[in-house]
C-alpha cells in the first residue's frame, strides 16, 4: 500500500501535463447546448481522482486549440490558472458546434547512468540528443494526449469532427451535443487514422461526491472502432480510452490517451 502511494505521488509530479497515469484529466464546460445570437461558455480543466472535482492539480493548457464551426481557430478569454483548476471563457460568436481540445505529445524516457535511475521527458525532436552517451536500460515511450469537449450554439453541425492522421481521436456517429438520458449514443475511435478496435472505453459520470457508488461503465470498441453508450442518467460524463503500442524493432513504445467530456440532458 505504501509503495503504491509513493508511486502515484512520483507519477503525479513527473508526469506530462496530461498523461494522467494516476489522475484523470478533464475539461468541463459550464453549458453545452445554447441558444441566442451569441453565448458565453466557461471551462474548467483539472486533473483529479474524481472527475470534475478540482482537488488535485490544474491542467496545463499550453496545447489548447479551439475550433469554430467555420474551421477558424478561436481564442480563449479570461484565462486563469488557479491552484486546482485552469479556467477560461469562450465567446460563441457563430452558430454551430465548437471543439475545445487540449493536445500534447512528446516522449517519456527512463534510463540508468552510473547506476542511478533517471527520467527525461520532452519533445520527440529533442530526444536523440537528450540521453547521455553512457546511459543504459533506456526505456522510451512516445505519448500523445487529447482532452476535448464540444459546445453548440443553435443547431449542431459536424464540421469540427475531423480525423487527423495521428493520435487517438473520437469520431461522432451520434452528435456529442445531442445526448439525452435513456438514449443510446455511438462514437468511433480512430488511432493514427485507422479504426481502433478492441479498445476499452471508461465512462464516468460526475457528481460522485453525492453518491456512494461510482457507477462507472466500461465498453469495448468493435472491429470498426465503434462503441455505444446508453446514458443511464442526465449529467456530465467523462469518456476515456488508452491505446498502448509495445516497442517493435527500432520503433519505441507508444501510449495514446483520449478524453472527451459530454453532457447528457434529461
Amino acid at each position: 500500500m505504501k509503495k503504491s502511494i509513493a508511486l502515484i505521488a512520483a507519477l503525479a509530479t513527473l508526469a506530462l501535463p496530461m498523461s494522467a497515469q494516476a489522475h484523470r484529466a478533464w475539461l468541463a464546460p459550464t453549458s453545452t447546448v445554447l441558444s441566442g445570437a451569441d453565448a458565453w461558455v466557461g471551462f474548467d480543466a483539472g486533473m483529479s481522482n474524481g472527475v470534475f472535482i478540482p482537488d488535485h492539480a490544474a491542467m496545463n493548457l499550453a496545447g489548447l486549440v479551439i475550433t469554430a464551426p467555420d474551421g477558424s481557430t478561436a481564442q480563449p478569454e479570461n484565462m486563469v490558472r488557479a491552484r486546482y483548476r485552469s479556467s477560461f471563457d469562450l465567446h460563441l460568436t457563430q452558430p454551430g458546434t465548437w471543439k475545445v481540445a487540449n493536445v500534447s505529445s512528446g516522449i517519456n524516457a527512463t534510463y540508468r547512468e552510473n547506476g542511478e535511475e533517471k527520467r527525461w521527458r520532452g519533445q520527440a525532436a529533442e530526444f536523440p540528443g537528450a540521453i547521455p552517451a553512457g546511459a543504459t536500460d533506456v526505456v522510451a515511450t512516445r505519448t500523445s494526449n487529447r482532452v476535448e469537449t464540444f459546445v453548440t450554439l443553435g443547431a449542431p453541425t459536424d464540421t469540427v469532427f475531423t480525423n487527423p492522421a495521428s493520435g487517438l481521436v473520437l469520431i461522432p456517429v451520434t452528435h456529442p451535443n445531442d445526448l439525452a438520458a435513456g438514449e443510446a449514443a455511438t462514437f468511433k475511435l480512430s488511432m493514427d487514422g485507422v479504426a481502433a478496435s478492441g479498445v476499452e472505453v471508461t465512462v464516468a459520470r460526475g457528481g460522485t461526491r453525492y453518491r456512494d457508488n461510482p457507477e462507472e461503465m466500461t465498453v469495448t470498441t468493435g472491429a470498426d472502432g465503434a462503441f455505444t453508450v446508453t446514458w443511464p442518467e442526465p449529467g456530465m460524463y467523462w469518456l476515456n480510452a488508452t491505446v498502448r503500442t509495445p516497442a517493435q524493432g527500432e520503433t519505441i513504445a507508444a501510449n495514446a490517451q483520449y478524453v472527451a467530456v459530454m453532457e447528457v440532458l434529461p
Binding site: V33, S35, G36, A39, G154, D178, L265, P266
Partner: peptide
C-alpha cells in the same frame, strides 16, 4: 432582442426536436 432567445434552449425537448433549427 438582445437576450430573449438565450433561454429558448430551456424548452429542452422542443429545442432538440426542432426549435434549434
Amino acid at each position: 432582442v438582445a437576450e430573449g432567445k438565450d433561454w429558448l434552449k430551456d424548452m429542452r425537448t422542443w429545442w432538440r426536436r426542432g426549435g434549434r433549427a
